[in-house]
């Protein structure tokens, strides 16, 4: 296990590369999903207001 984590002495480079890749991609995924959900709520609310007006 320690041997695996050590990555033949390249641990700092290998794990940083994987860690940054995973965090950036997960962040974009989650923030895109959140913005989409918020926009769905906003469209529904605007539609409801419109019906109320007429």
């Amino acid at each position: 296990m320690t041997e695996f984590l050590d990555m033949g002495g390249y641990a700092a480079f290998v794990w940083t590369a994987y860690g940054l890749s995973a965090s950036a991609l997960v962040w974009l995924l989650v923030s895109s999903r959140r913005k989409l959900t918020a926009s769905v709520v906003a469209v529904d609310a605007a539609r409801a207001r419109r019906k109320g007006d007429n």
């Binding site: 990555m7 033949g8 002495g9 390249y10 290998v14 590369a17 994987y18 890749s21």
Partner: peptide, 11 residues
């Protein structure tokens, strides 16, 4: 390159 080659799979 030893184990450092594993960076290739995300690069």
């Amino acid at each position: 390159q030893g184990e450092s080659v594993r960076v290739m799979y995300v690069h």
